[in-house]
Amino acid sequence: MDPEEFRALIAACDPEKFCEEQLFQKKSWLFEDSGLDEISSTYEEFRQAIGVATGVDPADIRLVGSSRFGFSMNPKPAKRFRPFNDESDLDVLIVSEQLFSEIWAQFRHAYYNGYAWVKERHGGDIFRRFLYLLREDRYNTSYLRQAAKRMDEMTKEVLLQTGISRTLKYRIYANWTDAVSYHAHGIRKLQRDLQNVAQ
């Protein structure tokens, strides 16, 4: 698929159906069609490595964005439909009610114990029902430090198992409905931007 075909697909799609029938399928352009020398494993092995590191069923792990289709789905004009390239990271979607609930509980615990920055940094994410752990040392509860370490170990495990040496960016969702809602919202924004450019 070339950029114009992908753009036309996005412009004409139903966002929710696109997520369920296209974006979240167990397929990945990166592993199946990119032909990049750095790919020495399968998509299944990639998801299995993340599952081992996080304790999440690999069936609830997906790649999204440019590694899924070969083109960025970021609505920002500078990144919109940009082809996967040497600077591209891997956007990992993880669906786990247990992991989401555990980390959210620890965010609340940290906030109630004086770490107001946790609410400021993660409040918008939690409102949209996903979590993203920062890779830094400001987490002052043992569980959040362990969770951040778990994500670092995930990255190392993926590198070890697959040979891929790219930055992993991941979002943890409570369920698939929340994942669809978030990504469908981004697709609708892309559609509005395409309509504005066409006018």
Results as ranks from 00 to 15, higher is better:
Met1Phe: 00
Asp2Trp: 02
Asp2Ala: 00
Glu4Val: 04
Glu4Trp: 00
Ala8Met: 01
Ala8Tyr: 02
Leu9Tyr: 00
Ile10Phe: 01
Ala11Gln: 02
Ala12Met: 03
Cys13Gly: 00
Asp14Glu: 02
Glu16Asp: 13
Gln22Lys: 12
Phe24Thr: 02
Phe24Lys: 06
Trp29Val: 00
Trp29Lys: 00
Leu30Ser: 05
Glu32Thr: 09
Glu32Arg: 07
Ser34Lys: 00
Ser34Tyr: 05
Gly35Arg: 00
Gly35Gln: 04
Gly35Ser: 10
Leu36Val: 09
Asp37Ser: 12
Asp37Ala: 14
Ile39Gly: 15
Ser41Met: 11
Glu44Gln: 15
Phe46Tyr: 08
Arg47His: 09
Gln48Ser: 14
Gly51Thr: 10
Ala53Asp: 07
Ala53Gln: 07
Thr54Trp: 15
Gly55His: 07
Val56Lys: 09
Val56Pro: 08
Ala59Asn: 14
Ala59Pro: 13
Asp60Ser: 11
Ile61Arg: 12
Arg62Gln: 08
Arg62Ile: 01
Gly65Arg: 05
Gly70Phe: 02
Phe71His: 03
Met73Lys: 06
Asn74Met: 07
Pro75Leu: 00
Ala78Asn: 09
Ala78His: 09
Lys79Pro: 02
Phe84Trp: 04
Asp86Tyr: 04
Asp86Val: 11
Glu87Asn: 14
Glu87Tyr: 06
Glu87Thr: 13
Leu90Phe: 05
Leu90Val: 06
Val95Tyr: 08
Glu97His: 13
Gln98Ile: 09
Leu99Glu: 07
Phe100Pro: 05
Ser101Ala: 13
Glu102Ser: 13
Glu102Gln: 15
Ile103Lys: 04
Ile103Glu: 14
His109Arg: 14
His109Tyr: 07
Tyr111Lys: 07
Gly114Leu: 04
Tyr115Arg: 01
Tyr115Phe: 12
Ala116Trp: 06
Val118Phe: 10
Val118Lys: 05
Glu120His: 13
Gly123Gln: 10
Ile126Arg: 04
Ile126Thr: 10
Ile126Gly: 06
Ile126Cys: 11
Arg128Cys: 03
Arg129Ser: 12
Arg129Gly: 06
Phe130Pro: 13
Tyr132Ala: 03
Leu133Val: 02
Glu136Arg: 05
Asp137Thr: 07
Asp137Arg: 13
Asn140Tyr: 06
Thr141Ser: 05
Ser142Phe: 12
Ser142Trp: 14
Tyr143Asn: 01
Gln146Cys: 05
Lys149Asp: 15
Arg150Trp: 05
Met151Asn: 09
Asp152Thr: 14
Glu153Cys: 11
Thr155Met: 08
Thr155Trp: 11
Lys156Val: 06
Leu159Lys: 09
Leu159Tyr: 10
Gln161Gly: 07
Thr162His: 11
Gly163Cys: 11
Ile164Asn: 05
Arg166Tyr: 14
Arg166Ile: 08
Arg166Phe: 15
Arg166Gly: 09
Thr167Leu: 13
Leu168His: 14
Tyr170Trp: 12
Tyr173Glu: 11
Ala174Gln: 12
Trp176Lys: 15
Val180Met: 08
Val180Glu: 06
His183Leu: 10
Ala184Pro: 15
His185Glu: 15
His185Val: 03
His185Met: 11
Arg188Leu: 04
Arg188Tyr: 07
Arg188Ser: 12
Lys189His: 09
Lys189Ser: 09
Lys189Leu: 13
Leu190Ala: 01
Gln191Thr: 03
Arg192Met: 11
Leu194Pro: 01
Gln195Asn: 08
Asn196Asp: 14
Gln199Ile: 02
Gln199Gly: 07
